[in-house]
Simulated assay, not measured.
Amino acid sequence: MGNIWFPSNQLCQQNWLMCVQNSGCLGILGYPCPRQQTYANTKRLGGFCFWLVVCVLLLYISWTLNFPKEKMSHQGVVVLNVGGLKFTTWPSTLQQFPESRLAKMLSGSDRELRLVNGEFFVDRDGVLFGYILDFLRTLQVSLPSDFTDYWRLQREANFYELYSMADLLSQESLLKPKVEILEIRFLLQETQAFFRVFGSCSSTIDALAGCVTIFAEQLGGPTWNNHNIPSQKPLVPLPLERPSHHDFIFQCGTDYSDRLGARYVSIKPDHRKLINGTNVFGLLVDVLLKEGFHLVSTRTVSAEEKIECYCFERTRPPDALPFSPAQQGSAVSQTKTIRMHKQK
């Protein structure tokens, strides 16, 4: 084409160029068309945004899959679904024993214990897992008095590769509840009463002896015999007789042949000072019943002396077996222990 003529007037030239640009004629004349250039730029920008969204989605999916491996062990709490029962705990609790399966679960190295809907699902007994979690929290095995599934709990400990707990559970005799026996021998003679308390557990006898206090008054002046009328004279506390760690002896009432005219008994938490032997016996039995004892039998030890024997018993919960950190040893020795259990 020939030379293009542009009007000399500057305003007319601008108007003419705008018309040519809007009509797309600049592309024909060899000049780039702004409309075509804008469309190409928009197309390139749209493709860039599409791939950007794809990359963001891929990064989010990767972060979600790696969350239990990288995030779960560092922040927040862990929710476990064990046989349908849900438990919530800190990651540090499950990492008490680094070689256990629960610790491996948090690191993502155990393929069987996986994250499902934000919870770690474990297809095992949920009730027994409660004792497993309690061991991880307290580092001791503490079972209720009516517990009997020792073998099944030991099997669960082996499944989670908590062999320290399994070794403690092997001491079944120490974990079983113990029957505690306590015996009261009671002799009532006119204005006096004599007591001897014997127990199979020395700690129980020590605690009970700490609740019993004997008070005595000096002879002199009139004294009310065989009544629960407190003396107006100052009372002096007397120590209990302790023939052994498993028994103690005391008496109450009046004895004018002794320089101590009357003996009163107080049994905590009751603050009364009783002189009548029958009342003291009733208060002592009431204390034992509140402590979980129940009467098993009664018998007469000596018909001539009229010594009555009352036998009580209660079931003591088993003592907790603590786990000593020294038993854990180094990581090498623990790994050897795991291999030995696996070979068995």
Score class of each variant (00 low, 15 high):
Trp51Cys: 07
Pro269Cys: 07
Ile307Val: 14
Trp16Asn: 01
His246Thr: 11
Leu45Phe: 11
Val122Leu: 14
Leu238Val: 11
Val236Ala: 08
Arg111Met: 10
Phe323Glu: 10
Leu153Glu: 10
Met18Ser: 15
Thr298Lys: 10
Glu161Gln: 14
Val332Gly: 10
Asn279Phe: 12
Tyr264Pro: 00
Ser23Asp: 06
Pro222Thr: 07
Leu321Lys: 00
Val54Leu: 13
Gln192Cys: 09
Ser203Gly: 02
Pro34Ala: 06
Cys252Pro: 01
Asp258Glu: 10
Ser333Tyr: 03
Leu153Ser: 05
Trp224Phe: 11
Tyr310Ser: 14
Ala103Ile: 05
Gln154Arg: 14
Lys104Ile: 00
Phe87Asp: 03
Gln189Thr: 12
Glu183Met: 10
Val78Phe: 04
His294Tyr: 14
Ser244Phe: 04
Leu208Ala: 13
Lys43Trp: 11
Pro269Gly: 07
Phe129Ala: 09
Thr278Phe: 11
Ile61Pro: 00
Val78Asn: 02
Leu113His: 05
Leu238Thr: 06
Met1Ile: 05
Gly282Asp: 14
Tyr264His: 02
Leu182Pro: 02
Phe48Asp: 09
Val236Ser: 11
Leu169Trp: 05
Asn225Ile: 15
Asp134Gln: 09
Leu115Met: 14
Gln10Met: 02
Ser324Leu: 12
Val296Tyr: 05
Thr278Gln: 13
Glu180Ala: 09
Arg155Ile: 10
Thr38Ile: 02
Asn3Phe: 04
Lys342His: 13
Thr300Tyr: 07
Gly277Glu: 05
Asp255Cys: 03
Tyr310Cys: 11
Ala216Cys: 06
Val296Ile: 11
Val78Glu: 03
Gly76Ser: 08
Ala331Ile: 06
Asn22Pro: 00
Tyr163Leu: 12
Thr89Asp: 08
Asp167Arg: 06
Phe186Trp: 14
Asp206Cys: 01
Phe129Gln: 03
Gln13Trp: 00
Ser203Tyr: 10
Ser92Tyr: 08
Leu80Tyr: 07
Ile229Ala: 11
Gly210Trp: 00
Gly261Asn: 01
Met105Val: 06
